[in-house]
């Protein structure tokens, strides 16, 4: 008797990226920078922690200005649980 597989049996942990980033957004120039790349910026409108999807499963991610991926590429309408 062979044990049959269900999809969940094949599932594994995805590669992880940080699911919380601190963003500083300037309404003046309409651009944002993560804290790490924004240290030299002076006038900042926001300093807010945001949650993002941790999964990179969909293959490509959204990137911050420095080119670091921050979240998955799935265009979901759902709000996560970070």
């Amino acid at each position: 008797m062979i044990d049959l597989l269900i999809p969940e049996d094949l599932m594994t942990e995805p590669p992880k990226t940080p699911n919380k980033v601190t963003v500083e957004y300037s309404h003046e120039d309409q651009t944002s920078f993560t804290m790490q790349s924004a240290l030299d910026r002076v006038e900042l409108a926001q300093n807010t922690m945001y949650c993002m999807s941790t999964s990179t499963f969909s293959g490509t991610q959204t990137f911050d200005y420095s080119g670091n991926p921050t979240d998955s590429d799935s265009d979901s309408d759902s709000q996560g649980d970070c």
Partner: peptide, 28 residues
């Protein structure tokens, strides 16, 4: 969204004539 680096690049290269509405900063 306000943390989107791709949108940053688009806005910077686009120059004037773009209005960025960030869902996560909607109350601003």
């Amino acid at each position: 969204g306000s943390a989107d680096g791709t949108a940053d690049r688009i806005v910077e290269r686009y120059g004037s004539g773009v209005f960025r509405l960030n869902y996560d900063l909607l109350y601003d």
